[in-house]
Design a protein around this nucleic acid. Structure first.
Length: 671
DNA sequence: CACGCTTATATTTTT
DNA sequence: TATAAGCGTG
């Protein structure tokens, strides 16, 4: 059963009782090992439902469990509890939430929803300035989340990570305080609450025994990217008697979620926290060729602090290339040509990926790919759930689920003609859905007197819709079809493509067909939103070959034959927003390491020199960039440097429109 | 008070 | 492109 495993991998897979830390370098078969361990546990008779597998994404969990199922040749692998910390927390809280004071009809807020609640509160508290711009709602949400996850004081967080909000400290404090109270009153739970409540469940003396005994084995993937709260949860999940069977797998060199308060301390102090832990190292890379591994090692050799670990590989291959490009357009052109070249040589598009630091780095390339009819799918940062009309539809479902969901109400009520913020607030009060109100929510209150006739009719229609959706006679998909019809007039009133937005709602209804219940549908959508997009030009039928575009963060754990890594210019990668202190720069370096180690056979780096401020504009405003600071002489020594190829059009004379251009021209002249 | 309009302004990465 | 904030109209 384990023929394919190396001796170290086999040791990890068949480890008996007690804590186990597997330090697995990139490409050393981490997934295989974890899957094999699950298979081993199943084969030795551990009941599937008493195994908990925590991964970074639902996709990762599903993949591992499928492999474990094949290995163990037994049914039941699908009964293993698998998923992200947040998704598992949600499941556990639906079952045991009452014990920590959480009603079972709670709804989960994603980060955009949380920002909406904060915005609502800000307005109520009157924190809008007539002199100065106040922080954006997304910033408020980020500040709150960071404070919770690091456990640092608000002042500290703002001073260190959000210095431009320093002057708004007191308003922010008031807003986030009210936010917490409001969530409780409205039965709302945000991502951070999911972890905090799980921790409470796992450590509270009155509930912990029930929960702690629920699993015989807990396995955690990507342990380097867990935060302090998550570590506390794992510690709290100790069985009342018997050994602590906790397996964690991670790589300190791949820690890239510091911004989310993840800390490698969890790996470094694993032995102290869980005494008697066995440590197994996997250092042999089976994924990449030796030249690629050499580049990865060269990058990490310059890291400030790391556990001593050096990857090895035995497979030969070509040296990774570094191509200096003129500008982004030049880069897009070069990437396309290289992609097509590889495809000519038999590497399918889906075995190739373009990776980048920030979602917008790929904008220009997307245009070029479309122009050349190269199909692609983009991972990371999806617009679908962010579109207003999709949020409207989901808000309606959320009201059905949890009638106290104030933000959802606030959003939906304003879709009715003649209802703005002020009337929406009044209606909320009447409904008894306003934070802090007692008793059940009464839909009859929607029939307020003294409203303009059109508004009154609109509210009656809304009441009818909600009654129908809540009646229990319709499944989620059918509810969404009703909702679509109700939303149609509002959608038509707003500018933009009506057909496209209605199509989005159809898409949503289609998605809902797969869900057994409304609760599940909403939970899955917020906790595991569709992660790839191909928004423009409709959703293509992806039965053919397509290229993958992905942020490096979203590429974690994945691999491709050929990887193209773009924007290796200082200020882009590392992002100049992340070069404040040394720790941040180190995280950017690890990010580069992650990107490099995604490649199996070929790796191409691209470093544009010039960035147009408005790539689609007609002017020539631009700035110049140095190559990434990570491309040190030692790193370049293991790269094949290619000169920029300006085959199309010979010498180009820059248009003289700005100081930057003139300086550029002069520096060319003076050589 | 709703609503449509104008203007200035932007800090990444994700569960 | 989205968002915060302000203004004028009905």
């Amino acid at each position: 059963m384990f023929d394919e495993l190396s001796p170290e991998q086999r040791q990890a897979a068949t480890h008996g009782d007690g804590p186990l830390l597997v330090l697995a370098g990139a490409g050393t078969g981490k997934t295989t090992t974890l899957a094999a361990r699950v298979a081993h546990l199943l084969a030795t008779g551990v009941p599937a439902e008493r195994i908990l597998l925590l991964t970074f994404s639902r996709r990762a969990a599903a993949e591992m469990l499928a492999r474990a199922g094949q290995l163990a040749r037994s049914a039941g692998a699908d009964r293993v509890w698998g998923g992200t910390f947040h998704a598992v927390a949600n499941r556990l809280l639906r079952l045991h939430g009452r014990a920590v004071g959480l009603p079972p009809d709670f709804t989960v807020l994603d980060q955009a929803d949380a920002a909406d609640v904060l915005d609502l509160i800000r307005e109520e508290l009157g924190f809008t300035s007539h002199v100065r711009r106040t922080p954006r709602k997304a910033t408020l949400a980020a500040i709150y989340s960071r404070t919770v996850n690091t456990g640092e004081r608000l002042e500290t967080v703002i001073a260190q990570r959000f210095p431009w909000c320093r002057d708004d400290l007191e308003p922010i404090r008031a807003i986030v305080r009210a936010y917490t109270a409001r969530k409780r009153a409205s039965h709302l739970v945000d991502f951070d609450d999911l972890l905090l409540l799980w921790k409470a469940l796992a450590t509270d003396p009155s509930t912990r025994t029930e929960l702690a005994g629920a699993f015989d084995h807990i396995l955690v993937d990507e342990y380097q990217d867990t935060n302090a709260v998550q570590a506390d949860i794992l510690e709290g999940m100790r069985p009342p008697d018997g050994p602590r069977n906790l397996t964690v797998v991670g790589d300190d060199a791949q820690a890239i979620y510091g911004f989310r308060a993840a800390t490698v301390r969890n790996i470094l102090t694993f032995g102290e926290r869980f005494p008697g832990a066995r440590v197994i190292r996997l250092e042999h890379n089976r994924r990449s060729t030796r030249p690629i591994v050499e580049v990865a090692n060269a990058v990490m050799a310059e890291a400030r602090a790391r556990l001593d670990k050096r990857l090895t590989s035995e497979r030969d291959g070509a040296r990774p290339t570094l191509l200096a490009c003129d500008d982004e357009r030049d880069q897009a052109d070069a990437v396309c040509r290289s992609i097509l070249e590889h495809r000519e040589r038999g590497v399918a598009l889906r075995e190739q990926a373009v990776l980048f630091r920030t979602a917008h780095h790929v904008d220009l390339l997307e245009i070029e790919l479309t122009r050349r009819s190269i199909p692609y799918v983009k991972y990371g940062g999806l617009r679908f759930l962010e579109a207003a009309h999709v949020k409207d539809a989901l808000a309606l479902l959320r009201i059905c689920e949890n009638p106290r969901d104030e933000v959802a109400w606030f959003r939906v009520l304003q879709l009715v003609e003649g209802v703005g913020p002020a009337r929406a607030r009044r209606l909320l009060d009447e409904l008894g859905a306003r934070g802090g109100a007692e008793g059940p929510v009464d839909l009859a209150a929607l029939l307020l007197p003294d409203l303009p006739p059109r508004t009154a009719q609109g509210l009656r229609d809304l009441r009818g819709l909600l009654a129908a959706c809540r009646s229990g006679a319709l499944d989620v998909a059918a509810q969404l079809e009703r909702i679509r019809d109700w939303l149609q007039p509002a959608i038509e009133r707003r500018p933009g493509s009506v057909a496209a937005r209605l199509a989005d709602l159809d898409q949503l209804a289609l998605l809902a067909r797969a869900s057994p219940s409304r609760t599940r549908f909403l939970d899955e959508l917020t906790l595991d939103p569709p992660s790839s997009t191909s928004d423009l030009a409709g959703r293509p039928v992806l039965d053919e070959d397509w290229l993958v575009l992905s942020t490096i963060h979203s590429a974690k754990g994945l691999e491709w034959d050929v990887v193209h890594l773009i924007h290796l210019a200082d200020g882009m990668f590392p992002s100049d927003l992340a070069t404040g202190d040394e720790e941040e720069v180190e995280e950017e370096r690890r990010l580069l390491y992650v990107a490099i180690t995604r490649a199996r056979h070929a790796l191409h780096l691209y470093a544009p020199r010039r960035f147009h401020h408005r790539p689609r504009g007609r002017d020539d405003a631009h700035s110049l960039a140095q190559p990434s600071r990570f491309l040190t002489p030692a790193v370049r020594a293991v790269l094949e440097e290619l000169a920029g190829d300006r085959s199309d059009g010979g010498e180009c004379v820059p248009a003289i429109t700005g100081v930057a251009t003139i300086d550029d021209l002069l520096s060319e002249l003076f050589g």
